[in-house]
């Protein structure tokens, strides 16, 4: 905001950068496509107010008793497959570990 800030990045530097960006982008792309039209009533999947499909039928009932023990699960497929710089094995582990210094 202050005048000193204004001087650090000069008008000339800004003009130079903007000018080269403009020439880059005109080389890159022509005008934006004009073949699009507005379309209402197209909601993203699953984002309508009442969900359709399995969740609304009694088919979901079987999941009812599942919640309590969920936290004994470890994120499936993640832990031991993802690189970790702090882990002694180099990958995530199923149990807490002491971070190594990297």
């Amino acid at each position: 905001m202050s005048a000193t800030t204004l001087h650090k990045v000069s008008a000339a530097a800004l003009a130079l950068a903007l000018g080269s960006a403009l020439s880059m982008s005109s080389a890159l792309a022509a005008d934006p496509p004009a073949d699009k039209e507005k379309c209402f009533g197209v909601a993203m999947k699953g984002k309508n107010d009442c969900a359709a499909g399995p969740g609304t039928s009694c088919a979901g009932t079987s999941k009812m008793d599942h919640q309590g023990n969920a936290w004994s699960l470890v994120p499936k497929g993640t832990c031991e497959k993802t690189m970790s710089q702090t882990s002694p094995t180099g990958f995530g582990q199923m149990m807490a570990f002491k971070e190594k210094k990297s």
């Binding site: 990045v9 800004l14 960006a21 403009l22 880059m24 982008s25």
Partner: peptide
């Protein structure tokens, strides 16, 4: 800065 402007334009 030029690359940043180019991102804005692109």
């Amino acid at each position: 800065l030029a690359l940043a402007f180019a991102t804005l334009l692109h």
